[in-house]
Design a binder for these strands. Structure first.
Length: 475
RNA sequence: GCUGCUAUCGUCUAGUGGCCUAGGACACUGCGUUCUCAACGCAGUAACACCGGUUCGACUCCGGUUAGCAGUACCA
């Protein structure tokens, strides 16, 4: 086969959600796997729903995920309007399309009547019988018109889908699709066929919601006499309610996941499995590995339901793969200004202590609070009393803390973790309490919560004097 | 409604007629490690939608049923 060329055709009507980005990613992987080209084409033919700000966002997503495309600058359909007009005229000449002057009202009424009769809503070809003279006259009068595709009467249209095998649809299921709108812009159907041909697209990998449009596209290819590409319809990505993922689900864009503290590696790895699986048990894939392993034959027919728990799992994994230096940069956006004042060196000491505990970068704040902020004395005291109660402890935490404080005042015990711990364990023995309980008391005293990073290292980062000060304040 | 697509653990999936008393991952539960929480290691619970047929033999092939989803726009 000659060089493979694929494309994505985002429409700037909003920020694409993560499901659309999956489709882009699959096209990218497919192209790279086969050493082909991957293009981006902006389909901005719907002027009513156009949101100009969404275009830079689309590009930002691709950029963040490092989904590289081969046509820069990207192709924008609205810059090539004359092409579509010419193409539509060509179809009129070939008698494959016709002018339609029907008003919106008439169409609406027609549809209502058909629905009432339980018939599929279909254009009734009212304008097909217009004579050339009538058409010319109407155009001359400035009547608004659209151009419709003339669907053949009763024809089996089929193609061999790359993912689903042979699919056949009878043309009588098809409506005389509008190709050119009354505002002069093409519809998706016209524009996509014209530009795919122009760009010599060889494979169309798109969501399964396009299956029912494919027969129209085939008809269009034949009408123009263009060479058809191969189609592969990807499974739809479903929300937790098993309906097609959409904004309505609060479906997030990749940028929102980024801001929530997810790594691109985790997003990519998660999207990889939304419709594709390797033939072995491999879970983690770098981008080069994905490119190497990804191909059509691994794509599933079944629609996957998104599982964000898995995304969290991947994210935690990829966070753990990062060096402290890398995490320092990645977590910088989540740090408060007064935290940054601690300086790079000090913060680099914190990172290894919380790294295994991070699932999202945004958890920085809750995991590190105790480093930066001394616990509230009153609340901490209450917490200590509470655990005294639970443990039915004879000597109260405060007495034990006094002893710990005395011990820790000696700078020599801070030399290393072993020495430090051994002494504390001795104190626990003296009080006849569990070692774990003693560490819990100290943990709460220093941090104000029952969950903290490892104590010795934590207190070293906080600093001896500050740590002791926090204890002292409780007594 | 009509047309099309799909159907294995809760979720993502492996499985292409005998390697399947169905494998892996997430999640969940337990155990281990441990100063807490994690991380890590080990173990456990848990699925072939249903009915027919083909076959010596069906998760795998065929037909039907059911269910889910998608499409049915001068939106993409």
């Amino acid at each position: 086969m000659s060089q493979i060329r694929v494309r994505i055709a985002p429409s700037p009507t909003g920020i694409p959600h993560i499901g659309n980005t999956r489709t882009a990613f699959y096209n990218f992987l497919f192209a790279r796997h086969h050493g082909g080209k991957f293009y981006v084409r902006i389909e901005d033919t719907d002027r009513a729903r156009l949101i100009p700000e969404s275009l830079p966002k689309i590009m930002e997503i691709l950029d963040w995920l490092k989904i590289e495309y081969d046509n820069k600058p990207v192709y924008v359909q609205s810059e090539h309007l004359e092409n579509y007009k010419k193409a539509a005229d060509e179809l009129i000449q070939k008698n494959k399309a016709y002018y339609c002057f029907c008003s919106e009202e008439r169409l609406k009424k027609l549809k209502e009547e058909q629905t009432a009769r339980h018939e599929p809503p279909r254009y009734d070809r009212h304008c097909l019988s217009l004579t050339p003279q009538e058409i010319n006259q109407k155009i001359k009068n400035g009547e608004r018109y659209v151009i419709r595709l003339k669907i053949p009467e009763n024809r089996e249209i089929s193609w061999v889908d790359l993912i689903r095998g042979k699919i056949t649809v009878n043309s009588k299921e098809l409506d005389d699709q509008v190709l050119l709108k009354s505002d002069g812009f093409p519809t998706y159907h016209l524009a996509v066929i014209f530009d795919d041909n122009l760009m010599k697209i060889t494979h169309v990998l798109r969501g399964a919601e396009w299956i029912s449009s494919t027969p129209k596209h085939i008809l269009l290819y034949e009408a123009f006499g263009y060479e058809k590409p191969l189609w592969g319809h990807l499974p739809l990505i479903l929300g937790p309610d098993r309906a097609k993922l959409s904004k309505r689900h609060g479906a997030q864009s990749a940028l929102e996941y980024r801001d929530a503290g997810y790594l691109p590696e985790a997003i990519l790895n998660t999207m990889l499995f939304w419709g594709w699986s390797p033939k072995n048990d491999q879970q983690f894939f770098s981008t080069p590995e994905m490119i190497e392993k990804f191909d059509i034959d691994g794509i599933n027919k079944n629609d996957p339901v998104v599982d964000l728990k898995k995304l969290d799992y991947f994210n935690g994994y990829y966070i753990r793969q990062k060096s402290s230096q890398e995490l320092f940069d990645l977590m910088n956006p989540y740090m408060q200004d007064d935290e940054k004042k601690w300086g790079r060196e000090k913060i680099l000491m914190i990172i290894p202590l919380i790294k295994d505990r991070l699932r999202k970068l945004s958890e920085w704040k809750e995991l590190t609070r105790g480093f930066f902020v001394a616990p509230d004395v009153k609340q901490t005291a209450t917490l200590l009393q509470a655990i005294d109660g639970v443990c039915n402890r004879k000597p109260e935490s405060m007495q034990i803390l006094q002893k710990i404080l005395d011990y820790l005042k000696n700078p020599a015990v801070w030399d290393n973790n072993d020495v430090w711990q051994t002494g504390l364990r001795k104190i626990a023995d003296e009080f006849k309490i569990k070692h774990g309980d003693l560490f819990m008391i100290l943990r709460i005293a220093v941090w104000g919560e029952k969950i903290t990073p490892p104590l010795y290292e934590t207190m070293k980062v906080i600093g001896n004097s500050e740590s002791l000060d926090r204890i002292q304040k409780l007594l």
